[in-house]
Amino acid sequence: MKDFRIEQETKGNIQIVRLTGSLDMYSFPRLETQLNTHLQQGHYAILLDCKDLDYIGSAGLGALIGFAKQAREKGGDVKLLNVPERIYKIIELLGFTKVLQVHTDESAALASFTAH
């Protein structure tokens, strides 16, 4: 199992957060802190790149809904990019794809923040 890592990148006014490893109850507080910091700093457009994510737990998914809701209230959103098939199945199983946008292409994902 890979260690959980968070890497940051900014493109325009969009924060790209690249995740590696397992996003579970043990590691989620680190992402939570990062997302809270972004929202407090007025960064409401956040793209989570999940390409190297091995696992996501139920609490993590639930919390992402809350962050997306907060970001949308300020005109932004929290969206997912490059979700591995195994994780996508979990997200889809519970209908989270209806409340969290999932993209497979980074350029399209970035463009979607300014499209609405």
Partner: peptide
């Protein structure tokens, strides 16, 4: 998650978005 909230009410803040959605 309702069980976790019943076990400790402080869990409500952690799981309210998930339980509301579900």
């Amino acid at each position: 998650h309702d069980n976790l909230i019943e076990a400790d009410s402080r869990n409500l803040a952690k799981f309210k978005d998930l339980t509301q959605y579900l």
